[in-house]
Design a protein around this nucleic acid. Structure first.
Length: 553
DNA sequence: ATAGGGTTAG
């Protein structure tokens, strides 16, 4: 019977572990008086864990008189993987006072749980226990420590652990490199990378993935290309993670040609890789390509998800053509994505930006649950259409729903005031934001306020407001005021501002259009020409045409 | 005998 059970267990391990199979197996084990054997108990605990039946797993564990290290580790891991941190930690504490001592894998598991739950105190505590247990020299513990500390944001301690190791293995090098990577410290990661090679350790796919993670924008594209070249040199296959990571890196950097080249090499790019590419096109301003690739993805039989849907809806919004967006709307409804707030928010925004605010409002009205992002979106959409009263009402609803407004909310409100010329309300919301909600005004808020005051002719007040800002003042803010001076033919104040900008050695090219318009309005053609010469003829706007700068919708 | 340290991305 034992032999039969053994072969049954080994067969079952190969199969898909269903809950019913596990229960049958459990019953068989009990029938044969084997449930006290930690070997079988461990197996069944693991099977229950795979099927998310932690209650049965725990029952079995509690009834096991003899608990091997395997059994302990399995039950702790079961809780940790189910994101039940406190249970996992409690069991770990029980283990410490039991006769079974934790091994490196127990520590690795609990360290990972600490970092996932951002339990910095727990992490420190477990770190201490690792040291006391004498397992601090084990690579498995060390890599778990380095990883946990980096993920929790404490790269300092992570690197201290790392540099305390004589001859780190590949996993440790990779862990530390990606530790620097997820901390955004590209330079340190690269340094470590060359040091690793100097010491004769051959990098693998994990190494480059860790490095590429840190490359977040176009300024680092040269580094990204070098690492890509390195993959070639070492003959890394682009499948698995390396290729996808390169695609998303190039997409993040808006190098869509390179992103496509890598993408074309991939056997079966997954959802996120497609999504990176599609979002990359959108962010690079190629909205049509974004939609075309989405269609390709669908034709290939790809299964979408809310993030991708929201992203293509944003691309349609930027195209400002309602066709594709409403098509995706239908698709979202048919496939159950519509329930996602992320999708409905994107829909509202898309309809509003495509000129169909009413359809956006309809979407909003069908939602029973909302969140702050959706309210913010509604407020700014209504504001954009000049429907300030409704935007204010939306804000009140939001407060009634006990949502806490954030800086975006006030951007929307101030935008609404601007579009409707409501100076008084604008002043009130601006004060409310700072005093009642403790939100510090950012450049966007000042731009709206300056524009609002300035367009109402309160140029001096707008000027004083800017002067009250602690330096440095964003160029859009001065730009907004210059435009207003132009519109109100207040060339005197315009000249004061211009002198101020010149004196402070401001980046005049950022204001050249506004300044030249101002001078043109005053028929000071010599000044217009001087500006033109100083800017290398870069002024493309026709002088004399008012251009309200500073705010991009 | 069992499992058991390091990944990515929108």
């Amino acid at each position: 019977m034992h032999i039969q059970l053994k072969s049954l267990i080994s067969e079952l391990s190969k199969l898909n572990q269903t809950l019913s199979r596990t229960k049958i197996l459990h019953a068989l084990v009990i029938q044969n008086n084997l449930s006290r054997d930690p070997f079988y108990a461990t197996k069944i605990v693991r099977f229950y864990a795979i099927n998310n039946d932690l209650v049965s797993a725990r029952n079995l564990f509690d009834k096991s008189p003899e608990r091997s290290i395997y059994l302990w580790n399995s039950i702790i891991r079961a809780y940790a993987q189910a994101h039940r941190f406190s249970d996992a930690f409690m069991l770990f504490k029980c283990m410490l006072i039991s006769e079974t001592e934790p091994d490196s894998f127990t520590f690795a598991c609990i360290l990972r749980a600490c970092s996932e739950w951002r339990e910095i105190e727990g992490l420190r505590e477990v770190h201490g226990k690792v040291v006391v247990s004498g397992l601090g020299t084990e690579f498995i513990c060390d890599s778990a420590l380095v990883s946990a500390y980096s993920k929790i944001g404490n790269v300092e301690v992570a690197s201290r652990v790392f540099y305390g190791i004589d001859e780190p293995d590949l996993v440790l090098w990779n862990t530390m490199i990606s530790g620097y990577g997820c901390h955004g410290d590209c330079a340190k990661g690269l340094q470590l990378f060359s040091k690793m090679r100097e010491m004769g350790v051959r990098p693998d796919g994990y190494t480059v993935v860790g490095l590429i993670m840190a490359l977040t924008d176009h300024s680092l594209i040269k580094v990204g290309e070098a690492i890509h070249g390195f993959c070639f040199k070492y003959g890394f296959v682009l499948n698995d993670h390396v290729g996808s990571v390169l695609v998303s890196m190039y997409s993040r950097c808006k190098c869509m040609d390179s992103a496509c080249r890598v993408f074309d090499c991939l056997d079966r790019p997954d959802l996120v890789t497609w999504s990176s590419l599609i979002t990359g096109f959108s962010q690079a301003g190629d909205y049509l390509k974004a939609l075309i690739f989405f269609r390709k993805f669908m034709i290939d039989g790809g299964k979408s998800d809310p993030v991708l849907i929201a992203s293509v809806l944003a691309a349609s919004a930027r195209l400002a053509v309602v066709g594709p967006g409403s098509e995706i709307h239908g698709f979202a409804v048919r496939n159950g994505y519509y329930t996602e707030l992320m999708v409905s928010t994107a829909l509202i925004d898309m309809y509003a930006k495509c000129g169909f605010l009413e359809l956006g409002i309809q979407v909003f009205k069908t939602k029973t649950n909302t969140n702050i992002i959706m309210y913010n979106s509604m407020i700014s959409c209504l504001g954009l259409y000049g429907r300030a009263t409704e935007a204010f009402q939306m804000f009140n609803d939001m407060i009634d729903g006990e949502f806490k407004p954030d800086e975006t909310t006030f951007c929307g409100l101030l935008c609404a005031c601007c579009h409707a010329g409501l100076v008084k309300d604008g002043r009130e919301y601006f004060t409310m934001m700072k005093n009642e909600f403790g939100i510090k005004a950012k450049a966007e808020h000042y731009v709206y306020m300056v524009k609002l005051l300035g367009m109402a002719g309160e140029l001096e007040e707008a000027y004083q407001l800017i002067k009250s800002i602690a330096k440095p003042v964003n160029s859009s803010i001065w730009g907004a005021l210059l435009s207003c001076c132009d519109a109100h033919k207040n060339y005197e104040l315009g000249e004061v501002i211009a002198q101020h900008l010149f004196e402070n050695k401001a980046e005049i090219s950022s204001y050249s259009v506004m300044l030249s318009n101002l001078y043109a309005g005053d028929e000071r053609w010599d000044a217009v020409n001087r500006l033109r010469v100083e800017n290398g003829g870069a002024i493309r706007k026709i002088p004399g045409i008012t251009w309200i700068g500073g705010i991009s919708h």
